[in-house]
């Protein structure tokens, strides 16, 4: 009974390895190298721990009196202590070298790069995709799409305080420091959705500063890219049209951009294709029409301290705006 229960507990621990945000669920080339390093160190340290505990147990049962009488044993013991010292030094040096080597050779694949500019701010992520000339083509918020197998170059900048970009399934973390540009290159090996998270404490809503990384095939990526680069779709229903009017008349348009309309604010996330995203509020809520309405109605209760103000809207206006935004696919 007891072994079965402990086996179950061990299996429960293994669920950590299938998480979309786990260094043990490595799906990127750099993450694989790091995972190998983690496993190597865990293995070596486990062996050392077993050896140390074994030695401890052995020394508890050892008869000291007898050993002390025998100079031969004493000499042997001294020799084994020196050997252990040498082995310790070797292991430490070896692990240091392995760690150095793994970090030196974090592999991000070959071939031409896909450049994406990342701007972190309190408390969301802005991803800018440049076109062929290097000019910004469109912006996305809290959702990073990348083609599988390509070398991705993320140009990291922070707009206010220090943040850190961490997609454990794809690569190691890298700090984003205001006033300087850091470069992180990575490569996703398999299509899938991974989770990234700010890894440097950045204030009130640090914990709600997540984003989704969607790695997809080249064809899917191309399709997504073209859809995102297009201006916002026109509202089709009466309700959505009314919602657009409300959006433009109220403070919303002062902070948010919807390309193709007169909303050109740059303080908040670009909402041109907000209806195509999986989450809102930097990974806070699943994007549905209901959650959009809840977010607009009272952002400060859902994510206290964030920079989206509570804009007083009537229930009709709220319904219309959420219909409009939800339809921005």
């Amino acid at each position: 009974m007891i072994p079965r229960a402990s086996l179950f507990l061990l299996l429960l621990l293994l669920t950590g390895c299938t998480n979309p945000q786990s260094a043990l669920n490595a799906e990127g080339s750099s993450a694989l190298a790091l995972k190998d390093l983690i496993l190597l160190i865990v293995l070596v340290c486990t062996l050392i721990w077993l050896a140390v505990v074994g030695f401890l147990l052995w020394s508890l049962t050892r008869r000291r009196e007898a050993a002390r009488q025998d100079p031969q044993t004493e000499r042997r013991m001294r020799r084994s202590v020196y050997t252990a010292l040498a082995i310790t030094a070797l292991i430490v040096a070896g692990l240091t070298l392995a760690s150095f080597n793994a970090t030196r050779h974090l592999d991000a694949g070959e071939g031409p790069e896909v450049v994406i500019r990342v701007k972190a701010q309190q408390w969301w992520w802005q991803f800018t995709y440049p076109n062929a000339d290097g000019e910004p083509a469109f912006q996305s918020a809290n959702e990073l799409h990348i083609p599988v197998g390509r070398r991705i170059r993320l140009e990291l900048e922070a707009l206010d305080v220090v943040h850190s970009l961490w997609i454990p399934s794809l690569a190691g973390k890298l700090d984003m420091i205001p006033g300087r540009k850091n470069i992180l290159t990575l490569q996703a090996l398999r299509p899938g959705t991974y989770r990234g998270q700010c890894a440097e404490f950045c204030g009130l809503q640090h914990s709600h500063m997540a984003f989704a990384v969607v790695a997809e095939t080249a064809a899917d990526y191309q399709r997504w890219w073209l859809a995102q680069a297009a201006p916002a779709s026109l509202p089709q229903t009466e309700e959505a049209r009314a919602g657009q009017a409300v959006f433009m008349a109220k403070p919303c348009a002062a902070c948010h951009t919807i390309r193709g309309t007169e909303a050109r604010g740059s303080t908040g996330p670009d909402l041109t294709h907000v209806g195509s995203r999986a989450t809102i509020g930097a990974g806070l809520l699943e994007r549905t029409r209901g959650s959009l309405a809840a977010w607009i109605a009272d952002p400060q209760t859902l994510k206290p301290g964030n920079n989206m103000p509570l804009v007083p809207l009537s229930s009709d206006e709220l319904r219309q705006v959420s219909a409009y935004l939800d339809a921005l696919k």
């Binding site: 109220k250 403070p251 348009a253 002062a254 103000p309 509570l310």
Partner: peptide
């Protein structure tokens, strides 16, 4: 008036 909330 149309760009900021009263609080802001």
């Amino acid at each position: 008036k149309s760009r900021m909330t009263s609080d802001e």
